[in-house]
Design a protein around this nucleic acid. Sequence first.
DNA 1: GCGATTTTGTTGCACTCGTAACCATCGAGA
DNA 2: TCTCGATGGTTACGAGTGCAACAAAATCGC
Lengths: 149, 149
Amino acid sequence: MAVEAESLELENFIPYRLNRLADAVSREFARIYKDRFGLTRPEWRLLATLGQYGTMTATDIGAHSSMHKTKVSRAVTALERRKWLIRETSETDRRIENLRLTKSGSAAYRELVPLARQFETRILQGMKDSDRQSVLAGLAALEKSALGG
Amino acid sequence: MAVEAESLELENFIPYRLNRLADAVSREFARIYKDRFGLTRPEWRLLATLGQYGTMTATDIGAHSSMHKTKVSRAVTALERRKWLIRETSETDRRIENLRLTKSGSAAYRELVPLARQFETRILQGMKDSDRQSVLAGLAALEKSALGG
DNA sequence: GCGATTTTGTTGCACTCGTAACCATCGAGA
DNA sequence: TCTCGATGGTTACGAGTGCAACAAAATCGC
């Protein structure tokens, strides 16, 4: 039997709790964009980023959505194959590709946004107001501490 | 440019924020057990669970630490190969294997626990008291809402 | 008892991921 | 103009993952 003083309560350990939560929430949310459109998570993120910001380069998207550049690259290829986005090589710097959603891509995005909002609402509803505030304040504090926020 | 009313602010979207946080925190924490012992995440979780609870079966560990049974199975194989745990087939039910740490396994666990505590402290320190409380209350509220908590 | 079902744990397979190496292009400086 | 380092993006490869199928053992129902 473990000696209490020397053991670690995993269920109270913040990295573990964060992981478990993110895993469960992601998995459930993924059902929405996966069932409806067969998107992967990186593809959803790419769609969401382009839907929000309009035109961006792959590097910018990676920095902004916390995805490794290979993930972005593969997601771009996938959405391009679907004809949901187009690349336009920059006139002034031919290394750069400006990405933006096509009509079909925008349509999919507009269809997903309310589902995403609804999903988030479902998580937050049923909480006390004070808990909702704790969630937001807690996430912000963790981001400030763990990311460069 | 995206129309505000129809777009989703990814950086305020809870599933995204959770994922990004968990990813960053995990990645950083993984450096500790990876650099020191070459453990993978499932292996660390297995070690931590056995260290905390003493003896368990693979199924119990999976349920308790939120790992798929194949993850557990592979982690068990890996730690067994290191001679950090032993399996003892139950006398009364020969499907079941009771797992427990060996002396070397326990030693590694005892070496990792303070590093884990220290890591968590580093995340929380520098926060205002109220923020620390928000983190704990927020995690608890999310767990209750998103897991079966 | 005895066949059907359930439970415990493992393995084959296809897919995803990050690292590192790579190609193409750009900008700075000699 | 000609390198050389930096930058944008892609790809080969090894490691990790979940699903589904599986074997072995236990339990249920008759």
